[in-house]
Design a protein around this nucleic acid. Structure first.
Length: 559
RNA sequence: GCCCCUAUAGCUCAGUGGAUAGAGCAUUGGAUUCCUAAUCCAUGUGCGCAAGUUCGAUUCUUGCUAGGGGCACCA
């Protein structure tokens, strides 16, 4: 808003420079307004002079001094507006703009007007995007890694919604195949053991306690009625149902919902698997060797070809994965985002090669890979092993630190980074805990509102507030940060990087706490200033709330 | 051997093609008659190494080194 006004003005001046022959049009659109990092460099800095100097040198071969260009530029800027207080040339040729302090209160008007949608797109962009995440097979409770993925995927979906996409969330799973047979066999073995019979526990069976719980539930319902059942199907189905229930509940605790659950089965039932194979075969991208069917991934820049149908006749995971993505394409999305754990990294090139082989554009699929999570307790890494059933589930994590902390912590790092989840910090009720820090900021502001009447300071109407009284650097800084919220949300969405929201919130909360302890919002002796500050605080709380909502964390009114 | 991710302060991590690279924790020392001290203030000579692109590189490219993960007719 403010930036675009300034940008417009700068663009006009650039155009004048072209007209007057100071420089050519070559740099149009190449320069930028940026927010300087350091104090004393103005509110916005423009690098136009350096860009122009570079371009002109390239075109004419003559050396151009950026500072001179900046001088020329500044003379063109002379017709000053209400916007800019002063302009300075600095460093290698930056043009620094110092705005009139009062213009910053514009961001408060916008915040008030847009309220709960401030920072978010109010009109749809008309694009449909599918976000696939979690996609855990129902073989056990969600692990910590799934937890990160669930929160990350959900936050990405929220971000994309906030910038105008029509978002659909999808969970892809497979309840058939070897893994599920093992699950059935494991359950059956536990069932027999609980009955005091000899249960042959599979070598690669699922050892978690949850299997025994499921077995117990079968006993509770059917007694020993199933002890002669040789087929593991029954056990598989009971286990699957129980586990899926459990997963759904965990997701629900985190307020994560899906629009679609896509079962791999569909791909077989509807003949898509055979379809894909025959298409690839027609294209000469599939061949038989050693009784198996191979996909020529080497034709797509990979080192070696991959098996898509085993010699047993069973497809490998690649084939349905490719097939599944074809279905996504057929459903007509404009964009597909896959959120995967780092352990799935190897499948990505295969799937994308498959997509391309089928004639679709693989660039319409964006894969977000997230690295692993390690848990820290007492400063030491918690060792986790599925085999020994010592892994901690998302449920247990939520039990221990609460949903808000789980969500917040999983989003504190960019997906590319390994994430260290410090349980002690997450449980802490103090500033060391960033969740509490931000939430406390919101709650603290709310108490100011509650106290306002008591102190005889009513905000009255926004229109009557005199924002020219807000001239403290701290106040201006808060307004600037609020004003930066929409662009930050957009950037976070563009990069599929929800961690930026988290960092922004910590920054904004920090600015608030700092302001709060140094200055008083409510001063009965200075009603006008108090009112202006009260509105500033109201806007601040709205932005905190909007930001927290974006990452699915609550904004408590009191703590 | 090949592929992916990472390398920034004592620790955990942000960040950017630009002008003086940040935050939290930890350390040390301060702040509460007053809107929640669950807070605030002060305290810091660090972008793994080497070339290249550029007016300008911590940021982009390449190579090297180190750590993590992956390279199944498992998913």
């Amino acid at each position: 808003m403010i930036k675009s006004q300034l940008q417009e003005w700068v663009d006009v001046c650039f155009g004048k420079g072209v007209e007057q022959g100071f420089w050519s049009n070559a740099s149009a659109g190449c320069y930028a307004l940026e927010e300087p990092r350091h104090e004393g460099q103005g509110d916005y800095a423009c690098n136009a002079a350096m860009v122009i100097a570079g371009k002109e040198k390239k075109a004419t071969g003559k050396k151009v001094n950026p500072r001179q260009v900046a001088e020329q530029f500044v003379t063109l800027l002379q017709e000053n507006s209400d916007l800019v207080e002063k302009v300075e040339i600095a460093g290698p040729g930056f043009i620094n703009f110092f705005l009139q302090p009062v213009v910053w209160s514009q961001v408060l008007s916008v915040t008030m007007a847009e309220d709960g949608s401030f920072g978010f797109a109010t009109v749809k962009n008309g694009k449909r995007v599918l976000v696939e995440f979690v996609s855990a097979n129902p073989t056990g409770p969600l692990s910590i890694g799934h937890g990160r993925q669930a929160v990350l995927g959900d936050a990405i979906a929220r971000l994309l919604e906030s910038v105008g996409y029509d978002v659909e969330r999808e969970y892809y799973y497979n309840d058939a195949g070897r893994q599920m047979r093992v699950l059935g066999a494991s359950t059956r073995a536990r069932y027999l053991e609980l009955l005091g019979l000899d249960g042959e526990f599979p070598e690669d069976g699922y050892q978690g306690d949850y299997i025994s719980d499921i077995a117990q539930s079968i006993i509770d319902e059917k007694g020993d009625g199933m002890k002669d059942e040789e087929d593991v199907m029954f056990f598989k189905e009971v286990a699957e149902k129980a586990i899926f229930n459990d997963i759904a509940q965990t997701l629900q605790r985190m307020s994560i919902r899906f629009d679609h659950y896509f079962n791999e089965h569909t791909l077989y039932d509807e003949g898509h698997i055979d379809d894909v194979v025959s298409i690839l075969r027609e294209k000469g991208l599939v061949y038989e060797q050693d009784d198996a069917t191979w996909f020529k991934t080497s034709a797509f820049g990979q080192e070696q070809d991959r098996v898509i149908i085993k010699s047993t006749g069973e497809p490998t995971y690649r084939l349905p994965d490719i097939c599944y993505h074809r279905e996504k394409f057929k459903r007509g999305y404009d964009w597909m985002v896959d959120v995967f754990g780092a352990d799935h990294i190897a499948t990505v090139p295969d799937v994308l090669a498959g997509v391309e082989a089928l004639g679709y554009n693989p660039e319409m699929v964006t894969v977000v890979l997230h690295q692993f999570v390690t848990l820290l307790r007492d400063g030491k890494q918690v060792k986790m092993s599925t085999r020994k059933a010592t892994f901690i589930t998302v449920d247990e994590l939520i039990d221990e630190v609460g949903v808000d902390a789980v969500r917040f912590f999983f989003l504190m790092r960019k997906a590319d980074s390994q994430l260290e989840f410090d349980l002690d910090v997450a449980k802490e009720e103090g500033k060391e805990n960033p969740v509490f820090y931000v939430q406390y900021g919101h709650a603290r502001i709310c108490t100011i509102f509650a106290k306002a009447a008591e102190k005889g300071v009513e905000p009255l109407t926004f229109a009557d507030a005199d924002f020219s009284l807000l001239t403290l650097p701290e106040e201006l800084k808060i307004m600037k940060t609020i004003g930066a919220f929409p662009a930050m949300v957009q950037a976070a969405a563009d990069d599929l990087a929800p961690h930026r929201i988290v960092f922004y919130l910590r920054e904004l909360a920090g600015q608030f706490h700092s302001f709060y302890s140094e200055f008083r919002v409510l001063d009965p002796g200075d009603l006008e200033r108090s009112r202006a500050r009260l509105w500033l605080m109201i806007c601040l709380s709205k932005v905190l709330r909007n930001g927290l909502t974006l990452i699915g964390v609550s904004a408590p009114v009191s703590m």
